[in-house]
Design a protein around this nucleic acid. Structure first.
Length: 874
RNA sequence: GGGGGCAUGGCGGAAUCGGUAGACGCAGCGGACUUAAAAUCCGCAGACGGCAACGUUGUGGGGGUUCAAGUCCCCCUGCCCCCACCA
């Protein structure tokens, strides 16, 4: 051969990417009235500057889903955008003086270019960018909806305060030791007045509606349920008494999930920062208590909540009366009680709660057993808290009731007698959305001395960020330092007022972006009801498990609120969710020093040594990250093998929800596979085969053995791949079916007549299209699936409909039946395809297998599974 | 501590409703082509025994149900993830 002809993805891919874009192949089609389109959505990225393999995996999965749906006749929305506000841009500004807007736009441009190299069927005309005012205008508009609905409010909340830089820090800017990431100073807690969204008002619906999401992974639903953390119990009221036992008129409210243990209460405990602490502390205890509270306040969250640390507390010098039995009990404070869960106060029942037990033992508080296991009559305390179920003792009129009965009866008594009520409690807290940062969506309210909090009128939105800020990284809110921006006239009274200087948590921006894609150019509303209802809920959402709780919960919350505001008519945004596993890279570590070594520094991968010390390195797979030097750059892979190989590898190597180990040898293997297909099609073309010629398979004509094998392989592949792409997505087995088909074609194609060869070639290329779109398109043209003159928008391989299985091609004359003797496989038997059970039994009994293993004995039992096996039991 | 998940060859992973365990691929081995190598093509391949036919054994460990168990039930071990002094 005079010229080297081989598969060269680089030229193929750029050519087709341009052709598709010019033809507008991936633009979202119009929907008919009342028609629901198919919405395939990837979690949009933060524009950090470069694409990593996790992104690639995410978007390739969604892309295959979108492409298969199109080929199945659906009208598909497959958009992309940018979650573009956030800390890294602001840090770049502080450290290098780059304008966050410029930095972000530059990153978006380079990431968009990288994404386009992957050949994703994205409609770029619908791109949204959360930091552009034509988007965040509507984030502000939606905030005002929450405000109007009474779901946004202000309250004091503590922030991380860096005393050196005099600034507020995000949690991720505080390291494990409670020090600032930049100044290294010990971070303090400071109270600021901040904005919250009342997500707790939706706690029940967010929890209960999880049942309506069968298309979500069980584990994500469980994580959300645990996060919401609804528990059933009671709020009990303990009157405060003085030293003489007289009521003072005050009371302490506690929350408990075990009202049945109320007769076992031997003390009460308040959180150190509980509002009643000051009032309850006796003068003699004042100093010690205050010292104790300060000590606890200085501890970090982590220190305080470590379960294994000893519990510490102090008696306040106050007393309360147990409303159930009238006993006088001491009131304590302790570090193990949290102010912001329940009522911030608990009743101590050492006999039936492990924490209370440890606390009581340490401070020698009395322990009284009030529940014994069913059937036991041992009333003595056994030396450990009994938290199981049982029967009440020492509980007056409730003695003898079991746990559940007792809970109901005691709550009922408390309600009638006025010392408590049944209540539900949630772990979920309201969502703090204030951020003391510049690079975020401004909260559109104005503070006026006369009118109070005044929303910015809708026609004055957006409240735009001041351009070219001078960010120092110091001070409370960066926006507060820009006088010209802060000082405005009150929209209500016209007198001088001040803008809110906090910006919103970026999760606000990402809680509704999926709605904007349905109507991205709307300049009168964030989205129209009609467009949102036509495309949403999202049919398939794909993204990382790291968003299992926050993002997905907030998005669900938004959808429910917007539905209640009558802006939508559905209440769950994402019908089906796929959480893809992470991409891991080969990691080298020096076990003694803990140092990570870059693969490029390792001389012999078979026997990896530390290039500096010569020590043996340990190798393993771990999530790709800069600090571990185990990342693989998508651009380099595309450069070398092309996007189609990268796509195929990622889809084939592991099921989508499992972690994927990046392996260069396997990438090479995928490339070889695509090359094999390329050669197969080219050889066929040289043989003169063309899809332009109409080929009819004459059903009268008998097929040769090769031809029948070929047809069976084609239709087996169609059936198997179709099934793999239905329901659970099994891209890995779908691709293995493509490999089987190509193997069979290598064997039978040449020996088959053109009509049959063409059917096989056409099927192979069409089935390949969602996975390796560029190669498929190129081979489609080469095979004459279309001509250069045809419009791409109708004749592209991606516009072909999904192949249909011809079940007659799968029929065989004979089938192989397994012969078992007492459940053990001993051989197999060719029987006519239509043979009934009696025939199969007869054939098995007279077979050589039966002779050998039964030696003339008659089986006592014969089990025939039609078409599968026959089991002879002696 | 609570909740969820996983465990299959040298490796990644297949296996419908309980019905031939190891599809497909990677790495490996053998052969063809080549002066040679690469590439390509063909073949072998769980482990143990055997020249072979074949046999035994085998899905983290133990028990059970069944004609038949990777799959269902019980117990145990190991690993991963989430939440965690939540009253």
């Amino acid at each position: 051969m005079s010229e080297v002809r081989r598969y060269q993805p680089q030229s193929i891919e750029t050519t087709w990417q341009k052709a598709w874009e010019d033809a507008g192949l991936h633009e979202t089609p119009e929907l008919g009235t009342g028609e629901k389109g198919f919405y395939a959505l990837s979690m949009f990225p933060y524009p950090s500057g470069n694409l990593h393999m996790g992104h690639v995996r995410n978007y390739v999965i969604t892309d295959v889903v979108a492409r298969v749906q199109r080929m199945r006749g659906a009208r598909v929305l497959h958009p992309m955008g940018w979650d573009a506000f956030g800390l890294p841009a602001e840090n770049a500004a502080i450290e290098r003086g780059v304008d966050p807007a410029v930095w972000t736009d530059r990153n978006i441009a380079s990431m968009r270019a990288q994404l386009k190299q992957l050949g994703l069927s994205i409609d770029w005309k619908r791109e949204v960018t959360t930091c552009h005012s034509d988007y965040y205008r509507w984030t502000q508009w939606l905030f005002l909806e929450f405000l109007e609905a009474g779901l946004a409010y202000q309250k004091e909340a503590s922030v991380n305060w860096d005393p050196v830089d005099q600034t507020v820090l995000a949690n991720e800017q505080v390291d494990g030791d409670g020090r600032s990431w930049r100044s290294g100073a010990l971070v303090e807690k400071r109270k600021l007045r901040q904005w919250f969204l009342k997500i707790t008002a939706y706690a029940d619906r967010l929890l209960d509606d999880l049942a309506e999401l069968p298309g979500w992974p069980e584990r994500v639903r469980t994580m959300q349920a645990n996060w919401i953390g609804r528990s059933h119990g009671a709020e009990l009221h303990f009157p405060v008494v003085d030293a003489a036992g007289e009521l003072t008129g005050e009371q302490i409210r506690v929350f408990t999930t075990r009202p049945d243990t109320v007769f076992g209460v031997s003390y009460l405990v308040l959180a150190p920062d509980h509002p009643q602490v000051n009032a309850l502390t006796s003068p003699e205890q004042g100093q010690v208590v205050e010292a104790f509270c300060q000590l606890v306040a200085r501890q970090s969250e982590q220190e305080r909540t470590a379960e294994d640390r000893p519990k510490r507390g102090h008696h306040l010098g106050a007393w309360a009366r147990n409303p159930a039995n009238g006993e006088r009990i001491p009131v304590w404070i302790a570090d193990y009680v949290l102010a912001d869960y329940g009522t911030g106060a608990v009743m101590g029942v050492p006999a039936h709660d492990q924490r209370d037990f440890l606390f009581a033992r340490q401070y020698e508080l009395p322990v009284r057993r009030v529940i014994i296991p069913e059937g036991s009559d041992d009333h003595a305390f056994e030396g450990a808290a009994w938290t199981g179920s049982g029967v009440l003792i020492n509980s007056g009129r409730f003695d003898g009731l079991n746990g559940a009965e007792a809970r109901t009866a005691i709550i009922a008594a408390a309600e009638t007698e006025g010392w408590g009520l049944g209540r539900q409690q949630y772990r979920l807290r309201d969502w703090l959305i204030s951020r003391q940062r510049y690079w975020g969506c401004p909260i559109p309210v104005i503070h006026c001395e006369h009118c109070g909090v005044v929303p910015v009128p809708a026609d004055q939105l957006p409240v735009t960020l001041p351009e070219h800020p001078d960010l120092s990284g110091k001070g409370v809110s960066p926006l507060a330092q820009i006088k010209s921006w802060v000082e405005v006239d009150c929209p209500g009274c016209g007198r001088p007022a001040r803008r809110e200087t906090d910006t919103m948590d970026t999760f606000m921006c990402s809680s509704w972006y999926y709605l904007r894609y349905s109507d991205p150019a709307n300049d009168t509303l964030p989205f129209s009801r009609e467009n949102a209802n036509a495309w949403l809920p999202v049919d398939q959402y794909v993204g990382g498990i790291e968003h299992a709780i926050l993002h997905l919960l907030y998005a669900r919350f938004f959808t429910k609120v917007l539905r209640d505001r009558n802006l939508l008519s559905f209440s769950e945004p994402f019908q089906r969710l796929l959480t893809q596993g992470m991409v891991q890279g080969l990691t080298y570590r020096n076990a003694s020093s803990g140092r990570y070594i870059a693969p490029t520094e390792v001389v012999d991968p078979a026997d990896p040594k530390d290039p500096v010390t010569g020590e043996q390195l340990e190798t393993f797979f771990e999530k790709m990250s800069k600090s571990k030097h185990n990342g693989v750059d998508p651009a380099a892979v595309i450069d070398r093998y092309g996007a189609d190989t990268a796509r195929m590898f990622i889809l084939f190597k592991a099921p989508p929800e499992k972690d994927l180990e990046w392996d260069d040898a396997d990438v090479e293997g995928q490339f070889r596979f695509l090359q094999r297909i390329w050669r197969l099609v080219n050889a066929a073309q040289e043989r003169g085969l063309s899809l332009q010629t109409v080929m009819v398979i004459d059903s009268q004509q008998t097929l040769t053995t090769s031809e029948r094998e070929l047809r069976r392989a084609v239709h087996t592949a169609i059936a198997a791949i179709s099934e793999d792409l239905d329901g659970e997505f099994q891209f890995n087995t779908a691709i293995s079916e493509l490999m089987k088909l190509s193997n069979a074609m290598g064997q039978h194609l040449e020996a088959s007549r053109p009509a049959l060869a063409c059917e096989a070639l056409r099927s192979l290329v069409v089935l390949l299209a969602p996975f390796a779109p560029h190669l498929a398109e190129d081979l489609w043209l080469k095979l004459g699936g279309r001509t250069d003159q045809d419009e791409l928008t109708t004749s592209s391989v991606h516009c072909q409909s999904w192949p249909v299985v011809d079940h007659t091609a799968l029929i065989r004359d004979t089938i192989t039946v397994i012969v078992q003797i007492k459940g053990k496989m001993r051989g197999n038997l060719e029987v006519p395809a239509g043979a009934d059970n009696a025939t199969i039994e007869e054939l098995a009994l007279t077979s050589a297998i039966a002779d050998k293993w039964l030696q003339g004995r008659r089986p006592s039992r014969v089990i025939v599974v039609p078409g599968k096996l026959v089991n002879l039991v002696p």
